[in-house]
């Protein structure tokens, strides 16, 4: 039936049975078929319930922060999860040797809310075939354009597979170059319109920290946004601007474009536009073709003695 899922269960089950990992992170059954949940299998039995289908939405990488403390963890990784893991490894928050990556080729995750809205009824299954998505409902199969069905973050995805894996569930798909159409559209607006755009969206912010807590780049042990000396706990529009702009600056050059912040946001703030603005600028200003992929010399996190600007010693503005 679902061969990928069967294969994943078998790989995860063996890893656990052989003691190569103490936990396997993937997806498990949720409230309904369209909402699988992050799943933490500790034994072959629990691995036997792993789910792998186009409804697997939540980002998994950040769970590695908690789950590699007690021993190596296995994880099923799409491209976004893989980049998230690279981020955590580059930031020395997770040891690469503490993670066993089962790489997959992801064709995009179906947004359960969009699917239900389009189908007008509960959706039991989905299949992503090129530019269309077939949804299974009690009333039969319905076909919709991919762009209407997938999670926002999957529409701009350029990384269907992780860049490295310890084993592959299937042939990995090659990465592409990321486009920034949303940012380009926003850049065309005048300052007043841009302000109005962000004010309208950020006004809804609940300051629930779902974005921060979803983000593999927001992996600091102590976050300045939790410290009232840096950011007051007041919740006016100005505070929301401060929160999100600070966060965007802190992950600039480190964001892996997994889009989990935006998926997690309960009030629909297009947070990725902020991150993509930085990515696009880094791409254009630093000639970094893939600014969302962790690299050896990170444009904003690396200093080289032969930097064209030099070390501004004696510079009074420093």
């Amino acid at each position: 039936m679902n061969e990928r899922q069967a294969k994943l269960r078998s790989i995860a089950g063996s890893l656990l049975a052989e003691g190569r990992v103490s936990l396997f992170i993937g997806f498990g059954p949720g409230l309904e078929p369209s909402r699988p949940v992050p799943w933490f299998a500790k034994n072959a039995d629990e691995a036997g319930k792993l789910v792998l289908d186009p409804f697997c939405g939540p980002g998994l990488a950040r769970y590695l922060l908690d789950e590699t403390a007690a021993g190596p963890a296995g994880i099923v990784a799409r491209g976004c999860d893989g980049l998230g893991l690279e981020r955590l490894v580059a930031d020395k928050r997770v040891g690469r040797d503490q993670v066993y990556v089962v790489g997959v080729a992801c064709r995009g995750a179906v947004d359960p809310d969009k699917a239900r809205r389009l189908a007008g009824r509960p959706v039991f299954g989905a299949e992503v075939n090129g530019e269309t998505v077939a949804l299974t409902t009690a009333g039969g199969r319905l076909s919709f354009p991919r762009s209407d069905c997938l999670l926002d973050r999957c529409l701009a995805c350029a990384d269907p597979s992780p860049r490295t894996a310890d084993t592959w569930l299937e042939e990995p798909l090659p990465g592409a170059q990321r486009e920034f159409e949303g940012v380009e559209a926003l850049e065309k607006l005048g300052p007043d319109d841009r302000y109005a755009f962000w004010a309208r969206h950020l006004e809804r912010c609940l300051r629930c920290h779902a974005c921060r807590n979803a983000c593999p780049a927001c992996n600091c042990v102590a976050c300045s946004l939790d410290n009232p000396e840096w950011l007051e706990r007041t919740t006016g529009l100005a505070d929301h601007f401060m929160f999100h702009f600070t966060r965007a600056y802190h992950v600039a050059g480190r964001c892996v474009a997994c889009g989990e912040c935006q998926r997690a946001c309960p009030v629909g703030i297009p947070l990725m536009l902020l991150n993509e603005k930085f990515m696009k600028d880094i791409r254009d200003l630093f000639a970094v073709p893939d600014p969302h992929r962790p690299q050896e010399a990170e444009p904003l996190g690396h200093f080289s003695p032969d930097d064209p600007e030099g070390w501004r010693e004696g510079d009074e503005t420093l």
Binding site: V37, P38, W39, F40, R207, C208, A210, N213, A214
Partner: peptide
């Protein structure tokens, strides 16, 4: 385990 400790 799957909780992210946010306030949603």
């Amino acid at each position: 385990r799957r909780c992210r400790s946010c306030g949603t």
